[in-house]
Each structure stands twice: as structure tokens, then as C-alpha cells.
Computed example of a mutant assay.
Amino acid sequence: MSAQFSSECKLARPDAEALLDRYVGLGILRACQGSASIFAVALNGSRWMIECPDVLSAELKQLFRGIAIPMEPGCRHEHLVIRLNADRYELTAAGKSIGVLGRAEIIPAIKAFLTEALLQTDFTLALHAALLRLGDRQLLIAGAPGAGKTTLALALSAENGGSLLGDDIVIVDEKGALRGIPFPAAVKRGSWTLLQTFQPGVTSCPTYVRSDGKEVRFIPGDIDSDHIAPARSTTMIFLRQNVARRQSLSKMSPLLAFQRLLTEAAAPTRRLTDQAFAALSKAVNISGVYEMEVGPLGQAVEIIRDL
């Protein structure tokens, strides 16, 4: 661990060892048998140093590559520790145990923890939605849980010129610009077959179990610094539950779109400020807004491509 810490933090080996010893003394890290890995992630201005067993390291770094940052000496980091004990993983943050989980549960638990940590940072407004770049356009997809926004977003991102910028959380800045948070997209079991044509790799991804008992597979978002930078939305699509599996697309009023986005939006201290209200209004008013029922996935992709 000291060799890796020395390399990633650009410290002399003795300094790295002394710093690790200090972390152990403070209870931030725990001296243990077996090798461990350390890497860092950024969550909207806050930094987290993650210590995990080597057996998880490559997997975590791949899944969370969109928020990974270099380790920098002198920077303040919060600390998340994953410890392996027999066949169970203990998740600890700031010295407090978050839970003890099995192998299939630990990755969803880490994503859930980092999501909650992100929502404790300083931001104007956060939307529960997916954000994509389609060529020179930006597309936001919103909908109630189970409406199929992740499935549609991943299918669209496979298009030529398509990129998934965020699957679950979209930050609205004070000017009404949108920025997706590039956590890995969680694909539920019912969508694995639907996505095979668009995302062939989904068939070989490991299967995990979320805290709600649902089986998911994770697909990392597309990483490009130009894509992650805030950009104005041009199109918003609100998915509607579609039991009959019929295909439809219709114009939607900006007022209704505003109300729908607010239904599952999050704001610091759970209070919608005048600034957040104005920012969301601006984001909606400069966008083309539609409501959609998704039938066959391929048809839905074609319709949106031709908008």
C-alpha cells in the first residue's frame, strides 16, 4: 500500500509510510493483513479517499472512473473504507460502520453511499434524470422509477455521436445549465435482453443485488471532459408508464415539465431557493419539451434521433 500511495501522491516512500501510519493512528485506516488499494473520487467539490481490498480495486476504479481524480498531497479528503472479513465486506465512513455486506451487495451499497454524499454537497438543484449528448444536442430524460429512462438512455448513447453523461443525477447550475454526474448506470434484470443489441457488453457484466432486492448490472458512463462540462439542454423527454407498449410522442407544456422535474428534485437543506426556482425555470424554458410512451426500443431511438 505504501508503494502505491507514494506513487499516486508523488511522495517519497518514507513520507508515504509515515502518512499511512498517521492515518492508522487516527483510525482513518486500519492496519490489516492482506493488500489494499487507495484511490480518490470527486463529488461536486468534495473529495473522498477510498481504501478497498485489492480484489475490489480494479472493479471500483472502472465503474467509478467518471468521478476518479488523482490523489493530491495536502488536499482534504473524506474517507471511505471497505474491509474484507472472510466473505463479508464492512463499509465504514468517518470511522462509523455503514453496514456489513456480501460480495453481490457491496458495489450497489458504495454507489448508494456516494450518491447520498453527493447530495450533501453545495449545489443549486439536483434532478432525478438521465443526461446525454447526441451529436451537438443535449437530451434530458426524466420519468418515474420503472418508466425505462436508464434503458432508453443507454440505447441512445450507443448511437453514433451519443454519450451518456449521467444516468441518475443531473445538477442544475445557477444559470440553468445541466451537468450529469457520471456514476455507473444500473440496468435492472428486465432490461438486460432489451439492451443486448445496443449494449452487447451488458450480457457479460457481473450481477449485483441492491438494498431493495433488485438485481442490477452496472455500465460505466462515457467519459469526456468536454461532455462533463455544463451545457444547456435542448430537449427534455418525460417518459410515461406504458402497459400497452404503444409508441407515442407529444409536445408538453413547460409548466407541466417544471412540475414533473420538481417532484423528484433535491435541494440543499431540502429547501427550494429563489435561485434554484429561477434556474430550473430557465432550463425548461430554453428546451423543447415532450412526453413519450416507449414501445419497441428501436423505434423509440429512431423517433428521438429524428427530433
Rank of each mutant, 00 (worst) to 15 (best):
L114V: 08
L119F: 06
E90Y: 12
N85I: 02
L132I: 10
N85S: 13
A129Y: 07
R88M: 11
R133L: 03
H77K: 03
R103D: 07
L91H: 01
G95Q: 01
T92A: 14
I106S: 04
R133W: 03
I110A: 11
S97R: 13
A129K: 03
E116K: 15
F123T: 10
T115K: 15
A109Q: 11
V100L: 11
K96F: 10
D122A: 12
L134F: 01
A93V: 05
F113E: 06
A94T: 12
A104H: 13
A93L: 03
I82E: 01
I107C: 04
T121I: 00
H77W: 09
Y89V: 07
G102W: 02
E78F: 10
P108I: 09
A94Q: 12
G102L: 08
T124E: 05
L134G: 03
P108G: 12
L119S: 01
A126R: 01
R83F: 09
D87H: 08
R76A: 14
L132T: 01
L114F: 07
A109H: 09
A117Y: 02
L127A: 10
L118C: 04
T124I: 14
L101G: 04
L101I: 03
V81E: 11
E116P: 05
Q120F: 11
I82M: 05
N85Q: 14
A130L: 01
G99F: 02
L134Y: 06
T121Y: 02
P108A: 11
T121E: 03
I98Y: 10
L91N: 05
E90H: 12
L132A: 07
N85P: 00
I98N: 12
D122S: 11
A86C: 07
A126T: 05
T124Q: 08
A126V: 04
N85F: 06
G95D: 04
L80N: 06
E105N: 08
T92V: 15
A130K: 02
R88W: 06
L118G: 02
R103A: 08
S97Q: 13
G99M: 00
L131N: 01
A104L: 13
H128I: 09
E105M: 10
L114H: 07
A112C: 09
I106L: 04
L134D: 05
T115S: 15
A126N: 02
H128D: 13
L84T: 09
R76L: 15
F113P: 01
A112I: 07
L91R: 03
A104C: 11
L131K: 00
A112M: 08
G95H: 08
K96D: 14
L125K: 06
E90C: 14
L127I: 12
A86G: 10
